[in-house]
Amino acid sequence: MKKLNKPLLALALAGLALNAQAHRPWLLPSSTQVDAKEAWVTIDAAISEGLFDIDHQPLKLDGIVATGPDGARVNLDNASTGKLRSTFDLRLAKPGTYKISLVSQGVFGSYKDKAGDMKRFRGSEESLAKDVPADATDVKLTRNYSRLETFVSTGTPNEAVFKPSGVGLELVPVTHPNDMRSGERATWRFLLDGKPAANQAFSLIPGGVRHRGTLGEIRQSTDAKGEISFELPAAGMYMVSSSWPVAAPAAAGTPPAAPARRVTYAATVEVLPQ
């Protein structure tokens, strides 16, 4: 598999909730809670087949943004990209919660050229005019919006970084993701374009599949308010992922129809031991 450029990355993110066995991008902090006078955290970033395994290729760092508890952007220190993963350090200079995120947008689809031949393309909104000729016919587009993130805290966690943008799928936790312990109950709220994402399915997958031998996926759906309350599983690092809309089954003998818009969300969270 070739290195993913930004449009391809958007497509990779779009497949997160469709196929639990597919290559998926992730951000993995060395710790989600740091208690130290000089607080630092190291983030690994990669695309892999086994969740949190370093087995495929690095995730490029040029689109990753770290936001501090005061809303200011935080520098990515000691950033490097190797053969199988990227990594960077984050100085947690102020107490509170930090968000590390990668937001991607892309457009892909197909059209018929003047000769009547079917062509496919993938790119960005900016490249759309170049990708699709003005005289193209039977144009079919799918716009993708993807969000990948993780959270770390030092001192007392706060919730400033969870202020929703109102675009795409977002997790607005009632239970802070850096304050979750095995066996306790947690409540999460999902929003779609700033409104409650009712009956929204999501998946929770623990790392360590290679050694565990089974995926161990937990599937849940939100209520009419976009909320879900559930008992937290065993301690460890997990990926929560969700996508909208739900893929429609294809008619016999035809490929599945691509939606006009696809939105995905994924985040790495940690469940602490009791």
Rank of each mutant, 00 (worst) to 15 (best):
E170R: 09
E170G: 04
E170K: 06
L171Y: 03
L171W: 10
V174P: 03
V174I: 15
V174A: 11
T175S: 15
T175F: 04
H176N: 13
P177H: 11
P177T: 11
P177K: 06
N178K: 02
D179I: 01
D179E: 13
D179Y: 01
M180E: 14
R181C: 05
S182N: 05
E184D: 15
R185S: 15
W188H: 10
W188E: 02
R189C: 10
F190E: 04
L191Q: 06
D193A: 05
G194W: 02
G194F: 08
P196W: 08
A197G: 07
A197F: 11
A197S: 08
N199E: 09
Q200H: 15
S203V: 05
G207K: 02
G208R: 09
G208D: 05
V209A: 09
V209E: 11
R210W: 01
H211D: 01
H211V: 02
H211W: 02
R212H: 06
R212M: 08
R212I: 09
G213C: 10
G213T: 10
L215F: 07
E217W: 00
R219V: 12
S221N: 14
S221G: 01
D223I: 10
D223W: 03
A224M: 07
A224P: 01
G226M: 08
I228L: 13
S229Q: 14
S229A: 15
S229R: 14
F230I: 09
E231G: 06
A235D: 14
G236V: 14
M237S: 12
